[in-house]
Every structure is written in C-alpha cells, then in structure tokens.
Simulated assay, not measured.
Amino acid sequence: MGKPAAERQREYRARRNADPDRRENYLRSERKRWKMNTEEGKKKTISDLSDRAERQKRTMWRKAQRRHEEREAFSNINTPPQRPNIQHAVQPDLSPQGSVWRAKSIP
C-alpha cells in the first residue's frame, strides 16, 4: 500500500525547500501567480477591501496568529516521560500498630 497523500506532499515540499535554487524558483512563480490573481481581480489587497471586509480580514489574521502561537507554545514544552502505572508495589505500612510490610497500591 502506498503512502498517504499528505505524507507524499510533505516529502515533496521538504525536497523542494532543501534545494535553494528550486525554492527560489518556486517562490518566484508564487509571487507571479499572486500578482496575476490580483490583476485579474481574483485576489484583493487589504487596501482594496471595504471597511467591513478589512476589519473581518484583520480579525481573521489575529485569530490565526493566536492559534499559531498556541501551537508553537505547546510544541516547545518538554514534558517528562510517563511514569509507569504501578498498581501493587510493596511499601511499609507505618500504622500505629507497628511497622508491618503490606502490599499497598500507589495512585
């Protein structure tokens, strides 16, 4: 069975970005495509939007930036490895009746 499309796409982009000339060529073509779309009216710059659409677009950008920052913050957290779940470890029972060894569970 082949790889999922998302994985193939991730690998393709990694190869493309690894080569500086190929990446520059890609970015140049993307800039050209963006310019063509704005000239044809498919895309609008923020200055070409109405006041309401401009506010909505900027609100959307702020929310996207917050989500991005949250993802970045969670990806940088160094968590300790999971402690094994020990159900029946033997520990001393230090009860008033004396110290007798009994099996106690650790939460």
Rank of each mutant, 00 (worst) to 15 (best):
D21L: 08
Q82K: 10
Q87V: 04
L27N: 14
E69R: 14
A103I: 07
R31I: 00
T59F: 09
G41Q: 08
K43L: 15
K63G: 06
K63Q: 08
A14D: 04
S105W: 13
K43E: 12
S99I: 14
A5L: 14
R33T: 02
R55L: 03
R22A: 06
D19I: 01
K35V: 02
N37Y: 10
K57A: 04
E72R: 05
P92K: 12
A6N: 13
S47H: 13
R66F: 07
S95A: 05
A14F: 06
I86N: 03
P107D: 15
E54K: 02
T59Q: 13
K35P: 03
E54Q: 09
D21V: 03
Q91F: 02
K42P: 00
A89D: 13
F74A: 01
M60S: 13
Q87P: 05
R71N: 08
S47V: 02
Q87R: 12
N76H: 10
S50M: 02
N85E: 07
D19W: 05
G98D: 09
E39T: 07
R52H: 13
K104G: 01
Q97A: 12
I77P: 00
K35I: 08
Q82W: 01
N17S: 07
R55K: 11
K44E: 07
A73H: 15
A18P: 00
A18F: 11
L94D: 15
P107K: 11
G98C: 07
Y26I: 00
A5P: 09
E7R: 10
Q65H: 08
N85Y: 12
V90D: 12
P92M: 08
M36D: 15
K104E: 10
